[in-house]
């Protein structure tokens, strides 16, 4: 082997590993601002103040680490808001999940008058921004609030009411998503179950729903995050801290306090982020675990 060919091979190997590395380099560069942002929030929550990413104490010296910013954890208002946020998010997961999987199934599998029109209208309604509907929804919530018994749970200025509105606004997306998942299932399995002796509802519950678990998990994550981060609807349809959720409380924090406690706001923001991360860790396996086999061919 001559030195020349050896060199050529070496440069070739270098070029190859370089071309392999390029996507990673580009990805890293593009994600860097986000990572720095989160890193700043994380560092800020444990510092008196920061300069760039460097924690500083009140005199501008490096250091000044503190847990002071997390003192809001003693504040019962925060825990009440957390509970409210949780109520809205869970209410949405259950409500949207249940209604969309039933509606989506009917739309995917049954033929009834007005099916096409319903599908079209649903999509159209989803195109409207919720801001446009605020006043109308306000009227509806006031009306519901006036109904005895029900009104105390899902009327104006209740967590149930906020959840109800959020569910309604999220249903079109959920229904379409679920319909898509049902459309992808083979008819044969359903027919087999009907012939085996199952009722239509039982087929849906025992045979079809387990097949779309990944879809249901995805929808749950979407709606949970939507519900957890909900701001506009809770802000508009709740008064006072009793029914406020975390984003509304966060807004009040940042609005009420001087610039000096930005670090406290950052801590509350991070606090709000934690359940989402935990939820994602627990559901990502369900998201990735898609059943295979047992059905060949078919549509």
């Amino acid at each position: 082997m001559t030195p020349t060919t050896f060199e050529t091979e070496q440069t070739y190997g270098l070029r190859k590993s370089l071309s392999r590395a390029i996507p990673y380099i580009l990805l890293t560069i593009s994600i860097l601002p986000i990572i720095i942002g989160y890193a700043w929030i994380f560092i800020a929550t444990f510092s008196v103040r920061t300069e760039g990413l460097i924690p500083k104490d009140a005199h501008g010296n490096i250091g000044g680490l503190t847990l002071q910013n997390w003192s809001f954890l003693h504040n019962p208002e925060v825990w009440n808001a957390t509970l409210n946020s949780f109520g809205i998010a869970v209410g949405m997961v259950v409500g949207v999940g249940f209604l969309s999987s039933l509606t989506g199934y009917a739309l995917a599998r049954m033929n009834f008058a007005g099916r096409k029109g319903f599908l079209g209208t649903t999509l159209l309604l989803h195109a409207f921004r919720p801001e446009m509907l605020l006043i109308a929804i306000f009227q509806v919530l006031l009306f519901i609030g006036g109904i005895p018994l029900i009104g105390d749970w899902v009327g104006f200025n209740t967590v149930g009411g906020v959840a109800l509105v959020m569910i309604t606004l999220d249903l079109p997306l959920g229904v379409w998503l679920m319909k898509g998942f049902f459309d992808n299932l083979s008819w044969d399995m359903e027919r087999a179950a009907l012939i085996d002796g199952a009722s239509r509802f039982r087929v849906w519950w025992e045979i079809i729903l387990p097949q779309i678990k990944p879809g249901l998990a995805a929808l749950s994550i979407f709606t949970f995050i939507t519900g957890w981060n909900a701001y506009l609807i809770p802000f508009t349809f709740t008064i006072g801290s009793k029914v406020a959720n975390l984003p509304v409380l966060l807004n009040r924090f940042s609005g009420d306090t001087s610039l000096g406690s930005w670090n406290e706001v950052a801590a509350l923001g991070l606090f709000q982020l934690v359940p989402i991360l935990v939820f994602f860790i627990f559901t990502q396996e369900a998201l990735l675990n898609i059943y295979g086999g047992g059905s060949k061919g078919g549509a």
């Binding site: 027919r191 059943y291 047992g294």
Partner: peptide
């Protein structure tokens, strides 16, 4: 179908994967 007392075998097998 459930009351007809029939059994059916499909081309796609149509087993319940879960």
């Amino acid at each position: 179908p459930k009351d007809r007392n029939i059994g059916m075998v499909f081309q796609s097998y149509a087993l319940y994967p879960h």
